[in-house]
Design a protein around this nucleic acid. Structure first.
Lengths: 192, 192, 192, 192
DNA sequence: AATGAATGAGGATTCATTCAT
DNA sequence: GATGAATGAATCCTCATTCAT
């Protein structure tokens, strides 16, 4: 029974408000005041807890990435065999915790953040490396060139996020997954 | 013999400077002063020609998109048969005028701009529709479900741009094209 | 056996921390939080005891001035004759309780405070009047124009504090006293 | 006939407004807005010309110091003999360009600034070195220990500025000069 | 007695935009 | 055609101070 102090609650509220505001604005041009208002507190308090706006952005990015990471891990433990693990990664990539409107809307902006803020780039690199490594491991027994296939699948996943962000509205997870699976079916044939 | 007045020259310089600055900064957080300085003129003159910063961004976006459009059209006129037209679109998508560092760097930010500025979204939609239509037309004689295949190819192209933007450095056009072709080979088999 | 409650202890710690922080910062731009942290308590408690930041500054100033006053009084009771009393005042002015790095560093800033805060000016006036009166009393039997000589000595003492503050490091009390004594020797000759 | 652009005029107005505001407030706690308002322009323009508040302070300090330097140099060229040069330095130190209410009021705060800002300290050191060197040169033919006497005179001058700042109102240049001269008379006797 | 939590007020700084020349 | 000069509006951030516990 961890007795939460106020701090984690506030921080969490701020992180969620940051993601929501970025998704709403469709850009990183959100003010600390907007974020704080949405989180139900004063801008000064937001600064008290995060020190600077950039730290808020990074915390939001970490939050989104760790949700995704958790979803993938959860899917992987339940998966059996290479095919199962491959399918798990793809499904988790379009799972409800990550492939939701807000997260997808923030996603694109985190990519932009990574062009500017080194720590953001680091976070993104970690995510990309992990995804690639998961895909390669699952593909090794299935494909002659697992590296190449993994890269194509990765590009497809990123492309799906991008298009979902641009389309707006509720992302169509089924369609996104179907596109990836279509490629895998064509590439792997009966092994898929 | 079109005698260019000074206006088109200035406008062109500003548009190119805008693209270059966005790519350099890795974000839309560039000031009119920075753009004007790179274009060799005063910020006031930039306003004189474009009225507002947003118009500059839109002109830059139009420039990039029209370069891409021209490259695709050029490749299509030289292409023969559905297979040839399909290959032409893919190759043009990673052609030297569009898949260069600066354009790719600006690209990502235009996607963000499209989340905020309606006119930018419209431009992007036009581009996406045209790409899809080109792909579908070429795929119709080749695939059982040309719509779906076209969407997968589109997602792959977007994913390649995205990853090139994140990677930084000179985009690897050959690798990007190879990934798309790999999918098409798997999907279409001997028809590719 | 005065049983100190906790209040005087806290107040004393805050006053000393204030002096130390001002000396460290070299200016009055110190936050209540910094002072409180150095005194080992929360900013809220500092306010509880002093009500406002300005009161803290004034208390610190009073502390420094009363230390100086005590040092002078102590030296005076042990002094004999006009010459002895004069020497006592000079020596006490550069005594170890007042002419130390921290006090000197704060000193300069109290002068600035006196430009802004009336009560601070009042405190400073009291100190200056007392110094002048001590000097005049001692000088009366020794000099033809005790008022003028007292003023010169006073200016020399202030100048020494100022220069010590600017020099930083451990103030050179011997050199400071020597300068004043040099003047007195020149001015009073054998009577010194 | 140097045709002044607007820039030097604005910069000059800002520097003078800075000195005036510091003297009025009696501290460095003046806002850029206050300074700009006094100089008759917007805060944004002040930033345009000086970039940052600190640069304004430093420019103000440089202005005051260079006025003083000019006054000393002017007095020195007209001076004859060591005695004349010594008197010139003392008189110039309390001359009308430097020993005016505003400059004296800012003076004390520049000392405080020098505790915080390295460039300010450098400026102050230059001033102090020059003063000492001038005094020593003039005193060498007159005193057995020119270094020591120069230091005493320097301390007296600083002390006079300090006391004038505290006293407020119009500084009494005659009295200040008299105090220094009194010391010199006592120290140098007939050689003065 | 003590503090964590919270905020209002204020200040430096940036920048798109305007306009007279 | 071109720009130097100028500013209003906005935003981040800091900090003294308050208050419930």
């Amino acid at each position: 029974m961890p007795r939460l102090g106020v701090e984690p609650i506030r921080r969490d509220a701020l992180v969620k408000a940051t993601i929501a505001e970025i998704a709403r604005a469709g850009s990183l041009d959100v003010t600390v005041a907007q974020i704080a208002r949405r989180a139900g507190m004063s801008p000064a308090l937001a600064h008290h807890y995060f020190g600077a706006k950039e730290a808020l952005f990074l915390a939001a990015m970490r939050h989104v990435l760790s949700l995704y990471g958790a979803e993938v891990r959860g899917a992987l433990v339940a998966a059996e065999g290479p095919r199962g693990r491959l399918a798990a990664v793809v499904r988790a990539s379009f799972g409800p915790a990550s492939f939701r409107r807000e997260a997808v809307g923030a996603w694109l902006n985190f990519w932009v953040l990574a062009q500017t803020v080194p720590e953001a780039r680091r976070l993104l690199n970690v995510y990309q490396r992990r995804l690639r490594s998961n895909l390669r491991a699952a593909l090794r027994p299935l494909a002659a060139e697992p590296e190449t296939v993994a890269d194509v699948v990765g590009a497809l996943i990123d492309g799906a996020y991008l298009r979902a962000a641009l389309a707006g509205g509720v992302p169509d997870a089924a369609a996104a997954a179907a596109a990836v699976e279509r490629y895998l079916l064509a590439e792997l044939g009966e092994r898929w």
